[in-house]
């Protein structure tokens, strides 16, 4: 375990009865890094987040956050963390500004300082004009942005975001990504869990892919894609007659074929070239799409399953 890491965990296990939610993971996160936990629902991401945000205790293994043990130094660690939980936990009866003023008090920040920071953070979250509105009246995207503003009140050294954009529309997601990107640029260490591969590719310098409580791969998004996938992917959909008759005939053109219930994924270097070859065999796919490989393909390769069902 390196002592200069912002966060390090070794052999981390979380057990609920007979169910092992987290099954012995090792991670090490450096200051200034933007680190992702990618995996489907139920992979153990949230259980991991609870342990590394010094809320729940590991069943086995060891964690050090800022070099401290969360089991014995929970309050000290949490004072230096920002947490954006999966579900919004705002005080809906209070105004936007009062939500921040009250939350800052939990950190024993003087009222005057909270007010000053809150004003700046509302600017950052693009909510200044909604400061006096009741929180209940905000849209989903605004609530998320307010939650992020709230998590920054104590000027955390490490910001932990659990599924930050789940349930948001594309516009709200992009606005949120933009704000997170600014934080990253300002040197805040980010830990993000997500089951969206585009989110992980956008925001994470480095990530681990989790499946069934274990880490199945680790690296930079681009490096993982290069390591586990080809440059391009050709997606073929067949009509009423189904794809089965074509699988054998087509597979010789690809490095690897994934047969999904509704489509075939051909892992190839040059998608257009392979598509021409496919047509030459007499196969008539209803639709064909050439795209670059993504983390989704890495996950499929590693686990045999898709990320978002």
């Amino acid at each position: 375990m390196t002592s200069d890491s912002l966060l390090s965990a070794r052999g981390l296990v979380k057990q609920f009865g007979n169910f092992r939610a987290v099954d012995g993971i090792d991670v090490s996160i450096e200051r200034g890094e933007s680190f992702g936990f990618l995996g489907p629902n139920g992979a153990g991401k949230t259980s991991t987040m609870r342990m590394i945000s010094a809320v729940s205790q590991p069943t086995a293994g060891e964690i050090r956050i800022f070099g401290l043990n969360p089991v014995s130094h929970g309050p000290e660690i949490r004072a230096r963390l920002g947490v954006v939980p999966q579900e919004d936990t705002l005080e809906l009866e209070l105004s936007v500004m009062n939500n921040l003023l009250m939350f800052g008090r939990y950190f024993d920040i003087p009222r005057k300082v909270i007010r000053q920071r809150a004003t700046e953070l509302l600017e950052f979250a693009q909510l200044s004009d909604r400061a006096d509105d009741k929180c209940d009246n905000l849209s989903g995207g605004m609530k998320r942005r307010l939650t992020i503003a709230r998590s920054l009140l104590n000027q955390p050294e490490l910001l932990i975001l659990d599924e930050p954009t789940t349930g948001l529309d594309p516009q709200a997601r992009h606005l949120l990504w933009d704000r997170l990107y600014r934080l990253k640029r300002d040197g805040v260490t980010l830990i993000i869990t997500t089951h969206y591969m585009d989110e992980a590719e956008q925001l994470c310098d480095r990530l681990v892919v989790m499946d069934q409580g274990r880490i199945v791969a680790e690296g930079a998004p681009r490096a993982l894609i290069e390591q586990y996938s080809t440059r391009e992917v050709l997606e073929l959909r067949f009509g009423a007659e189904g794809q089965e008759p074509y699988v054998d005939r087509i597979s010789e053109y690809a490095e690897r074929v994934e047969v999904l219930p509704d489509r075939l994924l051909l892992y190839v270097h040059d998608g257009d070239e392979v598509l021409r070859a496919v047509h030459a065999t007499g196969a008539t796919p209803e639709s064909a799409l050439v795209r670059r490989s993504s983390l989704e393909d890495v996950f499929l390769r590693l686990t045999g399953r898709t990320l978002v069902d």
Partner: peptide
């Protein structure tokens, strides 16, 4: 849950 993300126990 929000409170437990702060120093409170």
């Amino acid at each position: 849950d929000a409170v437990l993300a702060t120093p409170l126990d």
